[in-house]
């Protein structure tokens, strides 16, 4: 059967945005799509469209003028999605910490999953970051299909949900609630 959870991590498409950096990390991202360190072996394609991508690569410390565009791009991407912060400036401000137009790091605006260090990072570290982000993407893709609020407890056998037992546990819980209400009405 065609299982979307297993095959979603085989072709992640990336979106790249520069939020005020010095371009060192951007040319290393471009060099990691080049023939020597080939990210396209993992199925990665660089499109410029936020509605068609899974992985968000950000570089640069967030300046005061480019923070609205960053949050708009993050909300336009469909979930499940992963955010990777490339370079020391993106993780915590780098050399520009405490300068007057810089908000240190993108932690303050959007939730980040993977931090890649270095100034400027090398393509080897970027490939490490992308491989780790793909494992987190697979885990998020499984969590998104688990219903949480409707059923009381989640019972799983060998990775497959056991729906009959979960329905039985809800039925027992609703019988208890009905019994408590009828006791209160009598009192």
């Amino acid at each position: 059967m065609f299982d979307l959870k297993k095959y979603r991590k085989k072709s992640p498409w990336i979106l790249h945005y520069n939020a005020g950096s010095c371009n060192g990390c951007d040319i290393e991202i471009l060099a990691s799509l080049a023939p020597k360190y080939d990210l396209e072996r993992f199925g990665v394609l660089n499109t410029g469209n936020p509605k068609q991508s899974d992985v968000f690569l950000v570089t640069g410390p967030v300046t005061f003028r480019s923070r609205e565009r960053l949050v708009e791009l993050y909300t336009q991407m469909p979930s499940p999605k992963v955010v990777i912060a490339v370079g020391s400036c993106t993780c915590s401000g780098g050399v520009f910490r405490d300068m007057y137009n810089v908000e240190d790091g993108i932690d303050n605006y959007i939730p980040v999953d993977v931090y890649v260090p270095g100034c400027a990072s090398s393509p080897e570290l970027i490939i490490d970051g992308v491989v780790k982000a793909l494992e987190i993407l697979e885990q998020k893709s499984k969590e998104i299909e688990l219903p949480k609020k409707l059923f009381g407890t989640i019972k799983e056998e060998e990775g497959v949900l056991n729906l009959r037992e979960m329905a039985l546990s809800v039925a027992q819980k609703s019988e208890q609630i009905n019994a408590q209400k009828s006791e209160q009405n009598e009192n």
Binding site: G20, D98, M99, Y100
Partner: peptide, 29 residues
């Protein structure tokens, strides 16, 4: 969009022998 305030920080936060490492991060190319 990329203004970060480097000239002001070079006169208040960094001493004269460290500025060569800060100014190199104005542009990566």
């Amino acid at each position: 969009f990329v203004h970060r305030g480097i000239e002001r920080a070079c006169t208040t936060k960094f001493k004269y022998d460290k500025i060569a490492y800060v100014v190199a991060r104005v542009c990566g190319l």
